[in-house]
Write a protein that binds this DNA or RNA. Structure first.
Lengths: 125, 125
DNA sequence: CTTGCCCCTCACATCAATGTCAGGTTTTAG
DNA sequence: CTAAAACCTGACATTGATGTGAGGGGCAAG
């Protein structure tokens, strides 16, 4: 498929796809005239890339993780495994902090609701 | 306390604190000579602001949420409550997606480990 | 008074991902 | 064949939070 379709299928912009390639996250075969062609596999790959981007990983990091996805274990493994575990832990910590933030928001919301209840039941300001 | 101490206490850079003020997220009293002074309360406030920033909320959004923190319910409540709930939900969704990403990483790690086991036990490549 | 440190404002730089525009070629549909 | 739609490269713009540097006060200790 060509770049436009890949974009439609993944929700990424054409610009972003070219950028991913420029960063070495994505490869394409070129037609004689220079147009990029992709296989079905690239859909999943782009989806995964987007997921990592959404998780806040910079492309520097993603590019070091992707080899593990491509070849589910070659020579690179040792350092790569450590890398992935480190990122996983970072992510876990980040998730925990976000959860705390959400709880703080919930607390504020609860406070607000209580206040509104009191108002509605006729208390004075 | 002056800005340097607030920075030390919160871990935010002096530059960031001034930026927060510029964005209307933080206020300070000024000494005759123009230096910013803060109370103990600002420590918590900055911490909360940092938390929201870390959660990916842009200052536009934070600025609309903070009134709820300041006055745990005034006239603003109705729209503000909705706003907070929307942000809470957005955050919840985001957390879920991050969890999925982490699980995907875990899967890759598990695959890698299995492979290494096999290698170590003497299987051929 | 001087030295050192903290503070002030203003303004420009940075980074990363993405948007956008220009000028030109290729593919597709009528 | 022709026009529209999709593609190409290259380059500049944008956004948001923050870094950094210039140039200049304020204030405490020696």
């Amino acid at each position: 498929m060509r770049i436009g379709e890949l974009a439609k299928r993944t929700g990424a912009s054409v610009r972003s796809l070219r950028y991913y390639e420029e960063q070495g996250l994505l490869t394409s075969t070129r037609s004689a005239s220079g147009q990029r062609h992709y296989t079905e596999d690239e859909v999943d790959r782009v989806t995964f890339i987007q997921r990592l981007y959404a998780a806040g990983l910079p492309s520097r990091t993603i590019i070091e993780l992707l080899p593990c996805v491509d070849a589910p274990s070659e020579g690179n493994s040792d350092a790569a495994m450590e890398h992935m575990e480190r990122e996983r832990d970072r992510l876990t910590g980040h998730i925990a902090e976000l959860a705390r933030t959400r709880d703080a928001l919930d607390g504020l919301i609860a406070t607000g609701r209580t206040y509104q209840e009191r108002l509605r039941s006729g208390a004075s300001v």
